[in-house]
């Protein structure tokens, strides 16, 4: 997967090619493919930026960026742009795309090297690990979470995770609880709760519910074969309501 990765050294921007494919002398052999992808990423980032400006709330005329919204917007933009179907990205891991996308947005540089500093707001302020460890897949976890969140509409996803990126991040780490079907079932349960309890859920309760669900759907070991996505919708809803009701009654009543 050839990608073009922008970097900054001593104030000057430069780029290099990274690829998972086998090459003869250097990844530069794939530069043409990588540059085509870089151009496509311009459009993706423009789309994401426009979406973010519509979503972001303002206080006293100043935008208040929310990490949850930022990562959702990026994930959704990757999905809608179908960038993963790009020829340069066939048959390889997504992490190289994140390695290209993140510095490109952060340094705000288009394929023709013109500056687009407004893209920087797409990267959550706390996502800084990629700067120290640019090749570490875990440094781009925020994009992986965003891409995962894309499956739900923003408002639905926001409700499920209490508009908190940290909640989404935590749930993403429970591999057995990642399915879209489960998130929809949780949303179904949540919308049947009293407003006060929904507030508790958002603030402190999320982890309690997450623990209850991960006990019911363990990620490994006995009982881990059948995960939420394997159940019919009605059955899953019934299971999720039972699990979350009992967690609620045990901890919050």
């Amino acid at each position: 997967m050839p990608v073009l990765v922008w970097s900054e050294r001593d104030g000057a921007l430069g780029n290099s090619i990274r690829t998972g494919r086998r090459y003869f002398f250097s990844p530069e052999e794939y530069r043409a493919d990588a540059e085509a992808l870089d151009q496509a990423l311009d459009a993706l980032l423009d789309m994401a930026w426009h979406a973010l400006t519509v979503i972001t709330k303002h206080e006293n005329g100043k935008a208040r960026f929310n990490s949850f919204e930022q990562v959702w917007v990026l994930g959704r933009a990757v999905h809608i742009s179908e960038i993963l179907r790009h020829e340069a990205l066939q048959g390889e891991e997504r992490t190289l795309l994140w390695q290209a996308l993140t510095p490109k947005a952060w340094y705000g540089v288009r394929h023709d090297a013109t500056q687009e500093t407004r893209w920087r707001v797409l990267i959550p302020a706390r996502a800084t690990k990629w700067q120290a460890k640019p090749k570490d897949a875990s440094a781009y976890r925020f994009l992986e979470v965003g891409y995962w969140l894309r499956e739900q509409q923003l408002h639905d996803a926001g409700e499920v995770f209490g508009w908190k990126y940290s909640n989404a991040y935590d749930l993403f780490h429970c591999s057995s609880l990642r399915s879209y079907e489960l998130r929809q079932a949780v949303l179904y349960w949540l919308r049947r709760q009293q407003p006060a309890l929904r507030e508790t859920y958002r603030k402190a309760g999320f982890r309690v519910y997450q623990q209850a669900l991960s006990k019911r759907f363990p990620a490994r070991g006995p009982g881990s074969a059948l995960l939420p996505q394997h159940y019919p919708e009605d059955e899953l809803r019934a299971i999720v309501c039972e699990v979350l009701d009992s967690a609620r009654d045990a901890y919050f009543r």
């Binding site: 990205l89 048959g91 390889e92 891991e93 997504r94 881990s224 074969a225």
Partner: peptide, 12 residues
Amino acid sequence: PTSSGRFTISAD
């Protein structure tokens, strides 16, 4: 589910 990765077959 994705273009590349390690996937699990699980049985109980």
